[in-house]
Design a protein around this nucleic acid. Structure first.
Length: 298
DNA sequence: CAAGCGTGGTG
DNA sequence: TCACCAAGCTT
């Protein structure tokens, strides 16, 4: 016989989900009325972009494109422009591509299966699991940076999870903690994520407000500092990323096509400027109309 | 698989 | 101040 779901209060599930019920933020993509599209849009926007900056863009986006079909009917450039300054604008292109796939292959809806979700551009392991769990109440391990940090501390007793993507050991820990009942697993996933976002934060964790502080191996061990190699030091100013951002900002804020000469003031070094413009074209974020006239993709 | 990809707030 | 950080994905 398979194990019956326990009805006894779980030492971690119970306090964390109760904390979530009382302390969670009210966010539009958590409304009971949302569908797969609303969750997908929020998840892609939230990839490496903080909630506070996503909120206004998300509201505008969903008002304009409430279903995949409406976005799919627009030019990809419209999505890039609506993306604004959320960062990593290739995500806008991929979200547009995902909308097209939803229309052409999934009857206009965001698919509910993990494997189908993974076929959408811009949807990796985390996003597929998150959509399947949050929008469709399926049982999946959802491992984002918040969950990884919470489990690293709570179970692993260390300040931070390993650098790079989630490793097998982390998946095993998360899988072992995942409730058996799908709806409960989904609630646990969002609750742990929220705990990481509000309490078990990277910089200054508020352990005094943590519902499972008494069971936290990291806290019990005296909150030892991260002893691994120094964290990455990613300088930004002067990188191709920065130049690409400046170039695309001109295109975004300009209603029509932009002449090459209009792009020159954003960066003085012509070699790097041209390389970045070429890479934007190669990525499909910019379309050359003529030798020196550019526009967002049509 | 390590590197590349935007942007802005903050401790 | 400035390095770090924010619901990762792709090649």
């Amino acid at each position: 016989m398979g194990a019956m779901p326990s009805t006894r209060p779980h030492p971690l599930h119970d306090p964390v989900t109760r904390w979530y019920a009382e302390q969670a933020r009210t966010l539009p993509w958590r409304s009971p009325a949302v569908d797969g599209w609303a969750v997908l849009v929020s998840e892609v926007m939230l990839q490496q972009t903080p909630v506070a900056r996503v909120l206004p863009a998300y509201t505008d986006w969903m008002a304009r494109w409430p279903t995949p079909a409406e976005l799919a009917a627009c030019a990809a450039g419209d999505a890039v422009r609506a993306w604004g300054r959320l960062g990593y604008p290739r995500r806008a292109l991929r979200l547009h591509g995902a909308a097209v796939m939803c229309v052409e292959r999934f009857g206009g809806a965001v698919p509910s299966g993990y494997d189908d979700l993974r076929t959408l551009p811009g949807v990796g392991d985390y996003t597929a699991a998150a959509v399947a769990s949050f929008a469709y109440a399926q049982r999946h391990v959802v491992l984002d940076t918040n969950v990884r940090r919470v489990l690293a501390r709570l179970v692993g007793g260390v300040e931070y999870p390993p650098e790079g993507g989630p490793v097998a050991a982390e998946r095993a820990v998360a899988a072992a903690l995942l409730p058996d009942v799908p709806a409960e697993a989904a609630r646990w996933n969002v609750a742990v994520m929220e705990l990481g976002a509000l309490v078990c934060t990277a910089r200054s964790p508020r352990c005094a407000d943590c519902p499972v502080a008494a069971r936290c191996r990291w806290l019990l061990g005296g909150k030892p500092r991260w002893d691994g190699a120094a964290r990455r030091g990613q300088t930004y100013a002067g990188t191709d990323r920065a130049v690409r951002g400046k170039l695309l900002a001109v295109l975004r804020d300009h209603p029509g096509p932009v002449a090459r000469v209009e792009l020159e003031p954003v960066w003085a070094e012509a070699v790097q400027r041209e390389r970045c413009l070429d890479s934007l074209v190669a990525d499909g974020l910019v379309t050359p109309l003529t030798d020196d006239l550019f526009t967002l993709p049509t």
